[in-house]
Design a protein around this nucleic acid. Sequence first.
DNA 1: GATGAATGAGGATTCATTCAT
DNA 2: TATGAATGAATCCTCATTCAT
Lengths: 199, 199, 199, 199
Amino acid sequence: MEPRKQPAQARSAETVAAIVEAAARILEDKGFRGYNTNDVAARAGVSIGSLYQYFPNKDAITKALLRRETEPLSAALEQAGDAPSLAEGLQRFVQAAVAHQLRRPVLARLLDFEEARLPLQAEVGALGDVGAKALARLLARHGAGRGAAARTASRDLFAIARGMIDAAGERGETDARDLEARVTAAMSGYLDRMKIIAL
Amino acid sequence: MEPRKQPAQARSAETVAAIVEAAARILEDKGFRGYNTNDVAARAGVSIGSLYQYFPNKDAITKALLRRETEPLSAALEQAGDAPSLAEGLQRFVQAAVAHQLRRPVLARLLDFEEARLPLQAEVGALGDVGAKALARLLARHGAGRGAAARTASRDLFAIARGMIDAAGERGETDARDLEARVTAAMSGYLDRMKIIAL
Amino acid sequence: MEPRKQPAQARSAETVAAIVEAAARILEDKGFRGYNTNDVAARAGVSIGSLYQYFPNKDAITKALLRRETEPLSAALEQAGDAPSLAEGLQRFVQAAVAHQLRRPVLARLLDFEEARLPLQAEVGALGDVGAKALARLLARHGAGRGAAARTASRDLFAIARGMIDAAGERGETDARDLEARVTAAMSGYLDRMKIIAL
Amino acid sequence: MEPRKQPAQARSAETVAAIVEAAARILEDKGFRGYNTNDVAARAGVSIGSLYQYFPNKDAITKALLRRETEPLSAALEQAGDAPSLAEGLQRFVQAAVAHQLRRPVLARLLDFEEARLPLQAEVGALGDVGAKALARLLARHGAGRGAAARTASRDLFAIARGMIDAAGERGETDARDLEARVTAAMSGYLDRMKIIAL
DNA sequence: GATGAATGAGGATTCATTCAT
DNA sequence: TATGAATGAATCCTCATTCAT
């Protein structure tokens, strides 16, 4: 399921990138039903044989795409966990997540679903885990508790954010600022109500 | 795409029900990858020919299943919109949603995803629309505003609930009470923060 | 690797037989290089889908053909082991083997080779084992020893017969009587020389 | 189908040899199913492009391997035909054949089978022909007849030897002396019984 | 109505071979 | 001469759907 060949030459790297992007486009245009390797290859301007030089099977392509889309967000979420204040951490967190989702909402939603089926080996944790962990760290670092309760809270916060942002993307919202404000409100409202911390 | 024939006789109704339940089981066991009409028919104890007597195509089965799972919840959500108080309305709303998701979490998640692809004609609104509308009515009836802002708020509330409940189901949570409390907290926290209404 | 569906109706049985025979013909005509499921189906006058209704994969077809060709011979060889005299046993043994090989020599050779690659589960022993065992029984029952030496001898006898008959088939010999006489001579000559028994 | 270029330089000869040996190894390890040019090239430590510089196509590699394996044996068998006595001739013949087969039994068996499919042009006769001819010469030179009967006998003798030695190789026998004795016994027993000559 | 045999388009993957660098 | 990226025909197999019985 891993990339078959490390693209050694520049040309190869381009080919790999083209395949992954083609996969993204096809998923956006036609969904999983229309997502097949022949079309991906064609859209990438590459022969089907070349596609299989770089990816051992279809899932490997999806996985590569998943990584490409997920990793920058993961990194941003992790950084948010190290913010100087809780408020700023949440803000960064939400900003990153919103920016990610509004960039390619259809794709984000499809990959989000597919993530469950594709066992990304340990190397890349599921997005949900990464996000929840970053939030847990943020809470812990700013006196909002540790332990099981804090873990549940951080998972809930992540779920709130994901649910709202996902729905907004699906609805076609484009105003990032507004969405960020609402998501942040929901998250701090939750913290408030759960008496975890008052913001 | 609609059921091909209204089951006139009791036996037919049983057959239809068996097919739909078989579809549910297969989706739960093997996901979309293993979901095919031949297996559904076999699991239902029915010939593939009979299956196609009752359903014109595969999507029609999925749709029937979607309806079967969704309609009771839709009805419950609508009722919650008519509750005597906002607090009670939210509570009923969350109770219904949590009960639904925890009953068959895997199935709920898969259908939730598939809902986007299957154009249920107007007759049955998407669950999200129904839920958001019920919440909007609830807010309106208890002095929490109307108009665009309220519509956005109700959609957000629905998204918060769906996000949290979905994640809980995926994680295998089983304590409905606890989950309900957290979801309610998140929703009222949001209303609070957004200055829509103080609960 | 086993037949997928027991042909319940007469029509099905015919289809299965047609597929197996088509496989035989294609192997004879074009060898393993030209042996592919699409051509087998076409030659059987059946759609590729039907072929896969009865056989889960290509090897299963080869296996069915192997059984069809091998089982009668196996049975005949086993019977030869129970002959009233050593001479008659050898004669029957050789007759059966020669008749088998001269019937469809090309096919016999190809399947003989393929047998090594296809692990027929215990049910059907490899032809070589069956034949050698029958010969061992024959020798034992007529005072030609048991134990390791007899086992080696029976394997050698089988190998002699197979080698000669195979080569004759490949060369296009058609005179069964003559071939039988030579093979019998070789086998009894071996027994003689090895001082196992004098015929 | 012939080697594309005569290796003029030493390095080329090494490359060719490496390719042929790689082919041998892969055939031994994975059989025909796993025998493909890309893997052969990789195993030979050569690029696929280089492989095709020396061999015009895959069959040419197999053929070169066949020659490499077959020629020394052919030569030895021919020499056996010139032995001073029939007994010594048979002995040399069997020794050479046994030594060949026990060296790389799996490879020998595979190539034996493939020989039928690859039309080695006249230059190199099929092993069977060479062996049978050597035996025919041996018989003729020692008063055991000429003509059709002797030709048949020599073919039978070769078939006996091949059959026994092949089976022994497949079974994993390693005791060359013992095997030689049994094969010689079978051959002389045959000559005896067929009244061709008494040894 | 029910059955299940049959269909065949569609899709994943392999691998011999070429050719630009 | 060597390289290895690229090619695409060939092949295995699946599955939604039809239709004769």
